[in-house]
Amino acid sequence: MACMWYPIGFTVAANPSSAVVKMDEDGTATLLTGTVETGQGSLTILAQIVAQELGIATDDVVVVSADTDATPMDTGAIASRTTYVTGNAARMAAEKVKLMLFDVAAPMLGVKPHQLEAKDHKIVVKGYPQRNMHIADVANHARVVTGEPPIGSASFNPATVALDPETGQGKPFGTYVYATQIAEVDVDDETGEVEVIRMVASHDCGTPINPMLVEGQVEGGISMGVGFALQEEILFNAQGVQINPNLTNYIMPTSLDMPEIEVDIVDNYDPTGPFGAKGVGEPTLVPTAAAILNAIYNAVGVRITSLPATAEKVFNAIQAKREAEPKQITA
């Protein structure tokens, strides 16, 4: 078993994100973001955030990303920050579009803008769901009648306080996430081979914007953690030259090395995140090695203090333990 905490975003240093959201006359929207999709599904998450703010569906949002000529500044796909920081910027930019729509719709619905909400593709009078206009009609009206095409931009930077250089006291991060993973292992005490059979992972990410993608992050993080715990190591010769710079001799997990994984998402809501979301990218790997190493300890009573816990290391530790306890009946 191992639990952990992990922060979202850079340590104190400004790490802003900007976003631009524009809506076309049919009520579909485009998000411009300078972040880069590196596999996490961050663009999908951002589309869901914009859609949620505008009361439309994920598929109604197109995301344009990663071109410095076309997209606004973003600190990028690093430090588990995209959902929280870029997500906040995207939500705020979408909110500006929404407020423009409210301004247009309010006189048509005979209410004040603040009495409106956007949901299910409609601009709706709060508390009076039957009094509504389709968002496409409002967006079209904004463009062709009032001449105010809905567009919004916003920036977000997590609130931090610099650390005192003497004591390290301060507020380095906007928020943190928490998690626990528990491993079940099978240790062959004649060879030291460790097989990870099962991992249970209970993760906090604030509101899961897309639970399926959260699961994917956790499963992938665990695979990287299994490698970190048991297999992977860059090795150097005495001259400082790598001796295993290839995937033949740098051992990382294959599908046959992976345990069964059960992902559990802890209910949580962070008021500073977009719709309560925080993030999940990096933390998924953080407790894995510790959980596996503690499971090895529980299984065969040896504490491996240096990673990776190769079969040889585990075997040698088991041997050393037996030699230290000669009266123990060996298997």
Partner: peptide, 16 residues
């Protein structure tokens, strides 16, 4: 899941 509202919380498939 891509066509539903509210969008947040959906198991929406990836854009890519």
């Amino acid at each position: 899941a891509r066509q539903q509202t509210p969008a947040v919380g959906q198991r929406a498939t990836r854009l890519d």
